[in-house]
Amino acid sequence: MSLLDTRERKRASPTPPRAAAHPGLGQRIRAAKWSYLYLAPMAVLLLAFVVYPIFASFGYTFYRWNGIGAPGDYVGLANFRQILHDSIFWGAVGHTFVYAFVLVPVQLLLALALALVLNNPKLKFALFFRTVYFIPVVTSAAVVGVVIQLMLANFGDSAGSLLAKTGMTNGHIDWLGNPHTALAVIIAIGIWHTLGYNLVYFLAGLQTIPAELYEAAKLDGCGPVQSFFRITIPLLRQVGVVIVVLAFIGSFQVFDLVQVLTGGGPYFATEVVNTYIYHLAFGGSAGAAAEPDIGLASAASFLYGLLLIVFSALQVLALRGISRRRAAADQ
C-alpha cells in the first residue's frame, strides 16, 4: 500500500518531468533551470570559500610570499623542509594533541554523567539545569578568555597563597605565565566552554532509548549499574561515535581560547597549530618572524591538514571496528 502510494506520488509530481520516455541530458538540465538557480548561492559560497581554498593553499606552499601582490619567489619544497625541521611546529602539533586527548575523554565523561542525572524523568528543573550548564557554549571564547584571564590574575594569588600554606609553592602563581601550568589551564577552560554541546548530544542519545527496556531489565533483577553497562552504553554507541568524532574535530581546531589567553606563550608552551599558522601568516607573536610568510604558513596548514585527514580516517576506522566487534560479541 505505502509502496504503491509513493510510486504514484512520484509519477504525479511534475518535477522531474518524466512524461517523455528518456529526455536528453541537455533537456533535463534546461527543465531544472530553477533548481540550479536556487542552488547557486549556496554552491558559489561553498565552492569559493570552502572547496577552492583547500586546493589553492596547496599552490602557495611552493612560494616565499608575504601576502602582498602575486606570489613570485618560487622556492620548490623548501617551505615543507623548513616546517618539518621546525621544532616549534612539532611542539604545536604536540600541544594540540595533548589538548585534544585530555579534553575529549574528560569532557565526554563529565557530559555523560551530567546527562544521566538530567535525563532522570523524576528530576525537577531538569530544563533549568540544562540551560545553566549549556550557557558557556553560546558565549564567545575570545571574551570568556579575557574574563577568565582577569579572574586568574586575582584567583592566582588567592589559590597561590592557599597552596603556599601547604608548602607546595612559594606564594604567587602566574597560572598563564608559567609554562608548566598554562596548557593545563587552557584545557580546563576548554572543557568548561564546550561541555554543553556534548551534554545535549548525550541527552538526545539517551532519549532514543525506550524506557521499557529499563523496566524490563528491572523486572529481570538488573541493578542500575548493570542496566547502565548492558543497556545505556550499547545503545549510545551510535550517537557516541558521532560525539567522539565531533569532539576531536573541534579540539584540533582550537584557536580563540589560546590566542586570547596566552597567544601561544610563554616560550611557545601553549602554541597550538592554529596559532602557529596564524603567527606565520600574520605575525604578532613574540617569537615569530616579523615578516609574514604565507608560503610557510600554507605549508604548515597543508601538512597539518594531511595529518588530520589521516587521523580522522584512522579514528573512523577504529571506532567502526570497535563497535562492530562489540556488536558481534553481543550476539
Binding site: N274, A297, S298, S301
Partner: peptide
Amino acid sequence: PHGYTIIPVFD
C-alpha cells in the same frame, strides 16, 4: 578540516 584554509580565503 577547513579551519586551516584562511589564507586563500584572505587572498
